[in-house]
């Protein structure tokens, strides 16, 4: 009924104020956590450590989280971002091993990742399966396919002396002393921000996520919006697979799933940064920074690995509680 459409979103005069508190909460948490670890974690503030946080903890997760942000903006979720990462890795590694030029291998890797998105698009936009279930299925299918392709899940190594070194450029190269992974991440962040916030496509994605039936009744094609979204998500995720493989010179089946939960976490932490609580790219970037700093800080503090997870969980709770707790208070009855 009509009532259900309005119930999920708070509306009211003090909305703007609470939005400000939410934004403040995320930035404040970032500053606070940074200051905390700077004072208690030995070596946290060193340039080498901070650079390593950016390259190893932040850059790849940021790309995966940006991909996730598109799916969440469209009102869905993509549980198969890891699968796209893996398929891109596998295609990239296979083409390099087959002696193909690195540029072709990169294109092939992107295509391999995008295929996962195409599969999702068919399930979601074509058949009408809910994004959660569709991408969960893709996650399972993807895992099996990888095991079949690798004799039950054996890693595929790129031996340094038998293949050209060019394949390592993505992971290890620099431009003007800035590591390539960071540059690629910045480019993807900027481009995605523009697409989501400033293009007709981005607007229709956000509208579809808010109230799909209005989008349909406005003469826009929901299936098209969903199909493009999920292909785009996988294409962006594929970049993670390329950089990852280029860095570690090995493809490990199903390793991409390691990014999944943090990508979801960063996306939802990021929603507190928007005035209306929408997924947004700058918020997602801040969320990734927060997660990266916390992981690194807890590690340097000598905290047990399992307690690190607890710390991350508590952090997500508190940011969401501050960001959205304010919002609940102004929900009109």
């Amino acid at each position: 009924m009509a009532a259900s459409a309005q119930s999920t979103h708070a509306v009211g005069p003090s909305r703007k104020l609470s939005g400000t508190i939410g934004r403040y909460a995320l930035v404040a948490a970032l500053v606070l956590v940074f200051a905390l670890f700077a004072s208690i974690a030995p070596g946290f503030l060193s340039g080498a450590n901070l650079l390593s946080v950016l390259v190893n903890n932040v850059a790849l997760l940021a790309i995966a989280a940006v991909a996730m942000t598109f799916a969440v903006s469209a009102g869905g979720i993509d549980l198969s971002v890891g699968t796209a990462i893996d398929f891109a890795s596998f295609a990239f590694v296979s083409l390099v091993l087959a002696g193909q030029p690195v540029l072709l291998a990169i294109v092939g890797g992107l295509a391999g990742g995008a295929m996962v998105g195409l599969f999702n698009a068919i399930l979601i936009a074509g058949i009408g399966i809910s994004p959660f279930l569709a991408t969960l299925g893709t996650l399972f299918v993807g895992r099996s396919v990888q095991q079949l392709l690798t004799n039950g899940g054996n890693p595929v190594y790129l031996p340094p002396n038998s293949v050209p070194d060019a394949f390592r450029v993505l992971g290890h190269g620099t431009i003007a002393d800035i590591p390539l992974p960071i540059l690629v991440t910045l480019v993807i962040l900027a481009a995605s921000w523009i697409v989501l916030a400033r293009t007709a496509f981005g607007r229709s994605v956000i509208a579809a996520g808010m109230q799909a039936s209005v989008v349909r009744y406005s003469g826009l094609s929901l299936p098209r919006i969903n199909a493009v979204t999920y292909i785009l998500v996988s294409l962006i995720a594929a970049v993670v697979g390329l950089i990852l493989t280029s860095t570690v010179t090995v493809y490990i089946p199903s390793s991409g799933n390691a990014f999944l939960l943090n990508a979801i976490g960063a996306t939802f932490i990021g929603t507190t940064f928007d005035r209306h609580g929408r997924p947004n790219i700058p918020g997602t970037a801040l969320g990734v920074l927060l997660l990266g700093i916390v992981a690194n800080g807890l590690l340097l503090s000598g905290l047990n690995f399992y307690w690190q997870q607890v710390g991350t969980g508590l952090l997500i709770f508190s940011v969401l509680a501050i960001g959205f707790g304010q919002r609940e208070n102004v929900t009109r009855a």
Partner: peptide, 8 residues
């Protein structure tokens, strides 16, 4: 439900 998106 169909005419306007309330949270846009």
């Amino acid at each position: 439900r169909d005419g306007v998106a309330l949270s846009l």
